[in-house]
């Protein structure tokens, strides 16, 4: 058990634990904040595994933007601050399928990799990642930028206040 292993284990426990809290919490806002912790732990995992750029991009985009967006949405939909008890649907199908998927995958992966030891790689620095992105993966990169543009435009269009006017309701809320 090296230091890397210990770190992986600890961060993994934090990630899974807070992920569990995300999906079981009765407070909307707390769920969002638990998501932050989970995402942060995963960024830590990336660092241990040597993908530095990915880790910091994760922190920037996921924790910094996505979660903030989610919390804004929570605010804009007038979610209750305290606990709410109508957040959940029946448990058993979710339990069955979720447990099946999670445990099944875990068993599969554990069976595939057992307790083999792998050497830690060279860290994936920005320079190296940049070589790859603008080298071999430049086409997907460009397409992703178009996709981001499309998503931006789509989000703006979807947010227009006059979309509900077709059914005869007044345009303003």
């Amino acid at each position: 058990m090296t230091v890397a292993d210990a770190l992986l284990l600890a961060l993994g426990v934090i990630a899974v634990g807070s992920g569990a809290l995300v999906v079981t919490s009765t407070h909307l806002v707390r769920a969002g904040l638990y998501l932050v912790i989970s995402l942060g732990a995963i960024a830590g995992l990336y660092l241990v595994l040597g993908a530095e750029l990915v880790a910091w991009v994760q922190v920037l985009v996921y924790v910094g933007a996505v979660v903030v967006l989610l919390l804004f949405a929570v605010m804009l939909t007038r979610a209750p601050i305290g606990p709410s008890d109508d957040l959940d649907r029946p448990a058993w199908p979710a339990l069955l399928v979720g447990a099946g998927v999670g445990l099944g995958l875990a068993v599969l992966l554990a069976d595939a990799f057992r307790w083999t030891v792998y050497a830690l790689p060279e860290p994936g620095t920005a320079q190296r990642m940049g070589e790859q992105i603008f080298g071999g993966w430049v086409l997907p990169f460009e397409i992703i930028s178009i996709l981001l543009l499309a998503a931006l435009i789509g989000a703006i269009v979807l947010s227009r206040p006059d979309i509900g006017a077709r059914t005869g309701e007044p345009a303003e809320d």
Partner: peptide
């Protein structure tokens, strides 16, 4: 894997 299961 466990995270994925939790997500589902």
């Amino acid at each position: 894997a466990l995270l994925f299961g939790l997500g589902v």
